[in-house]
Design a protein around this nucleic acid. Structure first.
Lengths: 227, 227
DNA sequence: CGATCGTTTGAGGTTCCTCAACAAGTGTGG
DNA sequence: CCACACTTGTTGAGGAACCTCAAACGATCG
């Protein structure tokens, strides 16, 4: 937990240019490699940069006054984050995997770009709407009452967002603790629920982080309750 | 529940021009008065209009396949809603109070406005970020485990968003059922929790819909756990 | 090799959901 | 005007789901 230290940013170009509304600015973007648990930006840091995840995975979290942690979102390659209407970030973002790479864009320059380039502007807008859409879907997920529904929906979401190929094999980059804080249930319940899903034949757990969706409809029955 | 019928929109200008990034378009906006329970737009309706709540209150909801309803957000005067990256709305919006008034703006015209008017564009952006910010805060709220925390946070949110004057008197426009579906707890628990808060002297319930915050710090202790 | 972390499983306790009943308020029709 | 149905809100009892505490195991790392 206390391994967190701020990430040093370096100049450099980025790969992963697909789905990147800020591609025109990649020349001046600074990129950084982060170790596991390293903080990309802290809660209450000045919000004068936007970020784009180039590689790896990251978590966006809040720390409560009572010590509990909540994960608001996970970030995967291509995701844009760090925008804010406020002057400071209301969440902190930490790298999850060892090979995490982030590109950092100056907020002022982004605003200039959005002012001058209507195509870039349109794509930034789309990205923002995408973010709203994902948040609302996630809200529906969190609204689920039972742990089974939550975990099932989580697995389907991960298969969608970071699944390999066919979409039925998921390598989870995050720990059970992260999943628990993301779904607002206890670690033990996450673990128990996964075992239960495995016993039922809905998934197979080849290793702790490697989940294979065997019976997708069984998961959807639990976790995909909105029409 | 089945009183819902689509709202007939009429031409007309709007009051409540404060905090309205679409003020320039009010001339062509159509406004409508809605009765209690009337639907402003349905889930899966084509998303070719934006809306702004002029008066009253509304709820944005999803209907699950198992019959449960979830309320994603409440809308109050000034709030902009109905935008979507998709072609169809993913939620439905229904009026809560009898005196609800909504202004409807054609999406295509909004896009034109955003293209030509940089000030309007900036304000639309701000409104979108505000929406994201509120959604994330709400996610933190939903992540709360106990019913007390949820209800406390809810009351504080309502005092903020639709409180009268000093911010300690709240006239709730929504029913206990709405609150339950908003917080993802049962109606009975909402009712029980409110009585418990009243017995503790944190609030007073002058009538079922009229809540007065007596001991704000007691609520904040429960419901405002993020720093 | 010991220490720490992540994961899983068990036992007990608490919270909340479900079912049920009841009271108060509202609208309708006779 | 009252009887009636219906909606909304409150309270109680029982049971299920989940949280907390605890212990054990494997993996990783210094």
């Amino acid at each position: 937990m206390d391994t967190s230290s701020s990430v040093p940013f370096r100049n450099g170009a980025n790969q992963n240019a697909h789905r990147n509304p800020l591609a025109a600015m990649d020349g001046i973007a600074k990129s950084a490699h982060c170790g596991v648990g390293e903080t990309i930006y802290f809660q209450d840091d000045p919000a004068d940069h936007w970020y784009r995840l180039v590689n790896g995975a990251a978590r966006k979290c809040v720390l409560m006054t009572d010590g509990r942690r909540q994960i608001v979102d996970f970030m995967f390659p291509g995701d844009l984050f760090g925008w804010s209407r406020q002057d400071v970030h209301r969440f902190s973002v930490e790298a999850i995997t060892a090979d995490t790479t982030v590109a950092r864009y100056p907020r002022r320059r982004i605003e200039m770009l959005a002012e001058s380039d209507s195509e870039a502007r349109r794509r930034i807008f789309e990205e923002a709407f995408e973010s709203i859409s994902r948040l609302q879907m996630r809200m529906v997920l969190l609204g689920r009452t039972s742990a089974q529904e939550k975990v099932s929906a989580f697995l389907l979401e991960m298969a969608e967002r970071c699944g390999a190929g066919c979409g039925n094999v998921v390598v989870l980059p995050m720990s059970r603790y992260d999943i628990a804080d993301y779904l607002s249930i206890s670690v033990e319940t996450v673990s128990r629920t996964l075992t239960k899903l495995r016993r039922r034949g809905a998934i197979s757990l080849d290793s702790t982080r490697l989940v294979q969706i065997v019976d997708r409809s069984a998961l959807e029955e639990c976790g995909c309750l909105y029409a």
